[in-house]
Design a protein around this nucleic acid. Structure first.
Length: 979
DNA sequence: GGTCGCAGAGTTTTT
DNA sequence: CTCTGCGACC
């Protein structure tokens, strides 16, 4: 057995990055190069050099990644003496939690930067659920539309009721740093929205040049774009008139860019965007985008706060997942130290797969350009960035060694970024080779135990591919020639062993495929764990279930009947007729047809009390019995079990469930094949990867669409529809100017799909397989690149394997944790050990434990909010006995300083306690802690006392020379209890 | 061999 | 909304 460890020379780029801590660094860290590990090494070096943890900002994108990093930072072994509390409080965060923290401290007046009078108090909520924000926006938009209908009539007519587009445009603009103000746009926003006419003209002329084919002049790019317009319906454009031989009429260049609708659209967007921010602030809610926006605005506008917030050292992980505003924000957070900034960003542009969330890989690929461009943006009006951003100040490092895969797989991964997505797709090979010139070097010696192969199912029906995959899995687990080599930490070989189910990961572009595979696996006794979320109630099963439940609750619900009647095979005209009868309560006219439906509905209603029965009856009616049904039943039974489903609440639930997403785990077992979407697999690794479902239209997916409101830096903001008329007919037409611009500017539709392919391939350590039943372009191109022929007659008897203990893989352990053994608990957990931790954490802002019901809870929050506003000298927004009480209490308390809603984190024994103190009053010689209780009862007095005593202990540490006293303030009865 | 028209079939998800 | 595949046509 080979035990050779590839020797890493002293100039290993990983070492270079870990050891050079000063200056600007951009690190291209490909898959499996140990980037997070290197970041932690660099962090340790900084601490060992005497840098205080509070001066190093370590930032990433996801909560999990940040959590992992924080764990690494706290448990690392340092040579330098460093306090645990300092490490626990170190800024190791994801973007949003950093900004949240920042806003709680400095955000109060942030809205005023945009000209909004509303304040941002410290206890705002973040709308975390997409469905929630979407609903919120819808409510807002309908009201806005109504009150401004005249003003933007033509826009509304063009947009119809498409509020989702408006919301996503707001988010898009936010992500690139375009913000509305009361009168216009913040900073250079107005300019950006108009677009860049010079660039456009250059592009037009370039695309309209005479183009020579093999023998004679052929149609150029502009010509084919204009010709393509024949499929569009425009009321004021005739494509034929604008063609001139093999080119396009020159006069068109002036006409395309100037659209009189654009100005109106920009003003509409400003109004709706601005009003939406106001609307959210009035409700004390922010969305994720506005959290970043306000943090940026404060840092941009307030020199003092900016100086106080800047960091000596910043490191960013997963930099390919950032958007433009996050780049700008990071630049503001860098402290200028003698003309340089110490920032190291680490990422892999090849793994940028979150474009739909507005992240841009250009933050990496155009790092230098953006750095100097953004410096100009940030220095508009006054100088905010003083450190050097010249090319010469930027250090580029590429990690070259891979600790995961065989060399064969690494070499292969080069091809993934060059595959064609469609027959006439033109991947930007030049860009790929410029940014990824040679494959990574494998550190693990695996080339004797590695394989890449392609499989095509013999028949084209959809079950044949899942069966093929199960056969392959069976071969992998039964045939002795497949071995997995494991390594020790030092790189020497630990052991070689047979493959078991959990070593195998099946990846696909879609969720759906996994369900099929799992179902098929069950019948063949091969366990497949399905991991990931599913839109349960968007499935046919879910839609029909909700429809019947609606009808059960309200027999006249046309909304409910519609999907039922549709499933019955009725077409548009019949549907209209039938729903009409229902809403007019006139079903007698078709009593024959309705009788059976109504009977079934009545049967359901009679079982109303037993909801699970009702659901079963509905599924049985349609013969549904798949994983969706199981998952839906499980979901409902858990709601029922938790008493969340009284008949009244059912209506509510149904209305909100429509598009929500659930994490369902269906019959997952210990040793099973893992199924994931490629997105879900990012960051993970497996000895065996089967990339399945590589079928046309699936992967790469061709479903890409440009929204109705479109933004591109060259075109500016554009509306794709336009209200107009041809003769008698008035209606919504395509806006030809916008359509032409979009065609001119669109780039690499399949770039992100290719990166997805790269992510998938680089998850594999040793064995990598591709399967299809109807080969997509990706599948075909990979074959060509490899010079391989697909296996299309693969057969293997499916033999389930019972794994014995001796070959059981040792459980993957988290990196050695020199545990300080602290876990996080909230104060409320300590007050009452019976309350489950999750619940008590929720209740941290809940003023009264006895307030089990929503109303009391909401009321408590309202009073707390009012108290906080009073403490911050802001109008509480409403009057009541209690508000007056709090007001006079604060006015007369005579304290020198008042702090409200103080968050703390306090180590005690094996635990980290976290909590929020309502109010701290600081006097000359003493400190008083006040906790509001809005309920009237004092029956929990003992527990409250316990809570206060914990607070006292905490506050005592901060003010060791002052006497600390506690006070419980029962606001409802205006009584005080000293503790 | 080019190209035209038409039917059919299709996604991911984080803060 | 956009790609593929197919048949039709020059």
């Amino acid at each position: 057995m080979k035990t050779k460890i590839t020797k890493i020379s002293n100039i290993n780029p990983q070492d270079t990055f870990a050891e050079s801590t000063n200056g600007i660094y951009i690190v291209d860290a490909g898959a499996g190069t140990g980037k997070t590990h290197t970041i932690i090494r660099r962090y340790k070096n900084l601490i060992n050099a005497g840098v205080h943890p509070k001066d190093i900002l370590l930032i990433t994108f996801t909560r999990n990644a940040a959590e992992q990093m924080r764990n690494d930072v706290v448990t690392a072994a340092y040579e330098q003496e460093v306090s645990i509390t300092d490490l626990l409080e170190a800024p190791v965060l994801n973007f949003h939690s950093y900004c949240l923290r920042f806003l709680k401290k400095y955000g109060l007046k942030a809205p005023s930067i945009l000209g909004i009078s509303e304040m941002l108090t410290g206890n705002f909520n973040v709308a975390e659920e997409n469905i929630y924000e979407s609903e919120l926006f819808r409510k807002f938009y309908l009201k806005f539309r109504k009150s401004n209908f005249r003003k933007y009539e033509s826009i509304y007519k063009s947009l119809s009721y498409d509020y989702e587009t408006v919301l996503s445009s707001i988010k898009k603009l936010c992500s690139i740093g375009i913000f509305p103000t009361s009168k216009g746009w913040f900073s250079n926003g107005a300019e950006l929205l108009k677009g860049n006419e010079d660039e456009y003209r250059k592009k037009f002329e370039q695309m309209n040049e005479v183009c020579m084919g093999k023998t004679s002049e052929v149609q150029n790019e502009m010509h084919s774009i204009i010709k393509g317009m024949k499929d569009k319906v425009c009321f004021d454009f005739n494509y034929e008139e604008n063609l001139e031989g093999k080119r396009v009429k020159e006069s068109l260049i002036d006409e395309i860019f100037s659209d009189e609708m654009q100005e109106e659209l920009i003003e509409f967007m400003r109004d709706v965007y601005y009003s939406y921010i106001e609307f959210m602030l009035k409700r004390n809610i922010l969305n994720f985008d506005f959290v970043i926006m306000f943090a940026y605005l404060v840092l941009y506008s307030d020199k003092e706060i900016r100086n106080a917030s800047q960091f000596e050292y910043i490191m960013v992980d997963e930099f390919q997942d950032t958007d433009e505003i996050q780049f700008l924000l990071l630049m503001l957070l860098c402290k200028d130290i003698n003309g340089t900034a110490n920032i190291g960003v680490v990422g892999d542009w090849k793994q940028g797969i979150y474009g739909f969330r507005n992240t841009t890989i250009e933050n990496i690929t155009l790092f230098s350009e953006r750095l100097s461009d953004y410096k100009k943006v940030l220095n508009k009006g006054s100088e905010r960035i003083t450190y050097n951003t010249d090319e010469s100040a930027i250090n580029k490092i590429t990690f070259e060694y891979n600790y995961r895969s065989s060399q064969k797989i690494l070499d292969f991964s080069m091809h993934t970024l060059k595959c064609k997505g469609s027959a006439d797709d033109k991947p930007d090979i030049e860009m790929v080779t410029n940014n990824f010139s040679k494959p990574l070097t494998a550190i693990r010696e695996l080339d004797d135990l590695t394989e890449i192969a392609f499989y095509e199912s013999a028949v084209q029906d959809s079950d044949s591919e899942t069966e093929l995959i199960l056969k392959k899995i069976s071969e992998l687990t039964n045939d002795e020639k497949y071995l997995i080599r494991e390594f020790e930490k030092d790189g020497s070989v630990k052991c070689e062993r047979r493959i078991q189910y959990s070593d195998i990961c099946v990846l696909s572009r879609t969720n759906e495929f996994g369900l099929k595979l799992q179902k098929e696996g069950i019948t063949k006794n091969i366990p497949v764990n399905f991991e990931g979320g599913l839109e349960l109630f968007a499935s046919q099963q879910g839609i029909l279930l909700l429809a019947w439940l609606r009808v059960m609750l309200n027999v006249n619900s046309a909304e409910g009947w519609l999907p039922i009647l549709e499933t019955d095979g009725n077409k548009f005209n019949e549907l209209k007729y039938l729903t009409d009868l229902i809403s007019k309560n006139n079903t007698n006219a078709e009593s024959e047809y309705f009788r059976e439906l109504f009977d079934f509905r009545d049967k359901l209603a009679s079982e109303k009390e037993n909801l699970l029965n009702v659901i079963e009856m509905i599924f049985t009616r349609y013969g549904f019995e798949d994983e969706y049904c199981n998952a839906i039943l499980t979901e409902f039974s858990s709601w029922i079990k938790n008493d969340l489903l009284s008949p009244g609440e059912l209506t509510n639930l149904i209305n909100n469930l429509k598009i929500d997403r659930f994490n369902i785990e269906i019959s997952n077992t210990d040793n099973a094949v893992v199924y994931q979407t490629i997105h879900g697999s990012k960051g993970l690794e497996y000895p065996v990867v089967i990339l399945a479902n590589m079928n046309t239209l699936v992967f790469p997916s061709s479903k890409s669409s440009y929204p109705n409101i479109y933004y591109h830096p060259v075109s500016g903001l554009r509306l794709r529809k336009q209200f107009g008329s041809i003769g008698e007919y008035s209606g919504v037409f395509d806006n030809w100017r916008s359509e032409i611009l979009i065609c001119m500017l669109k780039t690499g539709n399949y770039d992100e799909e290719r990166r997805l392919l790269y992510v998938a391939a680089t998850r594999a350590k040793q064995y990598l397989y591709f399967t299809t039943r109807k080969a997509s372009n990706f599948f075909k191109d990979l074959l060509t690149f490899c010079g391989e022929i697909p296996v299309n007659n693969f057969d293997y008897q499916i033999i389930p394997v019972e794994f014995k203990n001796e070959i059981d893989r040792e459980e993957i352990k988290a990196p050695e944790v020199k545990s300080h053994g602290r876990k996080f608990v909230s104060v409320h957990t300590l007050m009452d050990e019976d309350v489950p931790a999750s619940e008590s954490f929720e209740s941290e802002i809940v003023p009264d434990i006895s307030a089990g019901n929503n109303e009391a809870m909401e009321y408590g929050i309202k009073i707390h909010l009012a108290a906080q506003r009073i403490a911050n000298k802001i109008d509480p927004g409403f009057e009541s006995e209690e508000v007056r009480g709090i007001y006079s209490f604060l006015k007369n308390c005579g304290a020198e300083e008042i702090h409200s809603e103080v968050d703390f984190l306090y180590p005690s024994g094996n635990e980290m306690i976290r909590g929020t103190i309502d109010l701290i009053l600081i006097y000359k010689d003493r400190v008083e802690i006040v906790d509001y209780k809005t309920g009237s009862g004092k029956k929990f007095l003992e527990q409250y006392k316990k809570q206060i005593s914990i607070y006292k202990e905490v506050v005592n540490k901060v003010y060791p020379d002052k006497e600390v006293t506690g006070l419980i303030y029962f606001t409802g009865i205006n009584e005080f209890v000293k503790v």
